[in-house]
Design a protein around this nucleic acid. Structure first.
Lengths: 245, 245
DNA sequence: ACCTGAACACCGTTCAAGT
DNA sequence: ACCTGAACACCGTTCAAGT
């Protein structure tokens, strides 16, 4: 009765094992490389074995989002709404930095799963107990948008995959030679002077130019605080749809 | 396909014809159904014929973004920066509403194409001539994020495809019977009271509950104006990285 | 109850060949 | 110069069968 098959040596599959393996695999190889077949291979199982525990790939991704949400800190207690929201959002952001696939899976999904709804409900609750009217809370949640998850869509972010640079030839900023990079930056400055002004710094002696990197965390917090300040102003002045602008 | 030679009756392919056909096809069948093979079929050509005019699918998508950007109004002249940005962003938004694939293609792409860079450069230019320091302009562009393109990532937006409802069984809000919808709303209210408070309204006589739809355009403008107000406040007070919060 | 194997209908893209 | 055909290495998912 002891079969010499792979099944004997390997623990039985279940939904949770499938999901955690999927998340770990996506952490390692990137979300675009995560396929049902690749995941099955990772679990030492034939592709169709997965379908006993997960209806299809969509549900696999939904399940991965569940795992993600579970990693976000619960709301802080005994602090004002602004602190609570800020901490929560920055916690979500940390989760998404740990799991680079999170952003693109959240983006691709309109997943009204209980885990997702629970998180949203709890964020809304923080606003409401913080003195926001239901109407204002509604608007404020829209304005927060994906920032609630710790990210915002930005052009020129690194793609989701782990080893994105060099994966395709385009972009190719880091793997070019210094001379080529310098030429590209000069060309950029020539054709797009405004971009150059905000993103490059010229060294005084020669005409060479250097790209100033973006501090993503600082930029995220800049925009978040701008929003939170705006929210507080509306709340404090008793904003309502009629008297607002 | 009944004709002896399709090539004889059909105009020669070129890059522009390929791109416009791709955009029109995506408008019609949705971006997730747009494949090189499907596009070739639409153009009455064998799949490999496309590769003479477009290096690969990535470049096809980049080209579609070019078309998109070309549809955005040029910046208004003779108005203050706030009006100019607002008009421009709302023009971009109209373009994206016309082409539902635009959002997801922009999201999927880190396309540093000249068309995209030109648009960004021009938006930055509006801030700079409007009295923003280069440093503040940089932050403000980050804060604007995808709003600059007329969209923001939001949970529970309609998916990108044209006939998204009913395409998959999940979600299934509109195609359910009234009784089922009512039951779902009641269940929502029970498990997620805060969501319910901001998104549902109860009718007074019976206990039934009705979903208040979201006015996406109004929500977009609410958040946009909140941002622009914040930008103006920082500009007017001469914000700099040292004295800021 | 869980896993397997073969098959189907798709992808993007290569290479070598046709006109 | 432009288009074609066959082939390769992948997908997600079905169905019927094995243990």
């Amino acid at each position: 009765m002891a079969r010499p098959s792979a099944a004997a040596t390997r623990p039985r599959l279940n939904r949770h094992r499938v999901l955690t393996a999927a998340a770990a695999l996506a952490d390692r190889i990137g979300i675009e490389a995560l396929s049902m077949r690749r995941l099955a291979q990772e679990l030492d199982v034939v592709p169709m074995a997965l379908y006993k525990h997960v209806a299809n790939k969509e549900q696999l991704l939904d399940g991965m989002v569940e795992l993600l949400v579970a990693e976000i800190d619960p709301p802080a207690t005994g602090v004002d709404w602004r602190t609570a929201i800020r901490l929560r959002v920055l916690s979500a952001r940390r989760v998404l930095l740990r799991h680079p696939w999170g952003r693109s899976v959240l983006e691709s999904r309109t997943s009204r799963t209980p885990a997702v709804l629970g998180y949203i409900d709890s964020v809304i609750g923080t606003f409401r107990t913080g003195g926001f009217s239901d109407e204002l809370t509604h608007h404020v949640m829209h304005a927060l948008g994906s920032r609630m998850w710790g990210f915002t869509q930005e052009l020129f972010d690194e793609p989701a995959g782990p080893d994105a640079s060099g994966a395709d030839g385009s972009g190719a900023d880091e793997d070019a030679s210094p001379e080529v990079q310098q030429a590209m930056l000069q060309a950029l400055a020539e054709h797009f002077p405004n971009i150059a002004a905000t993103v490059l710094t010229a060294t005084h002696d020669d005409g060479t130019v250097v790209a100033r990197g973006c501090d993503d965390q600082a930029e995220f917090e800049f925009a978040l605080d701008l929003m939170l300040d705006g929210f507080e102003r509306l709340r404090a002045t008793g904003w309502s749809p009629r008297v607002g602008h």
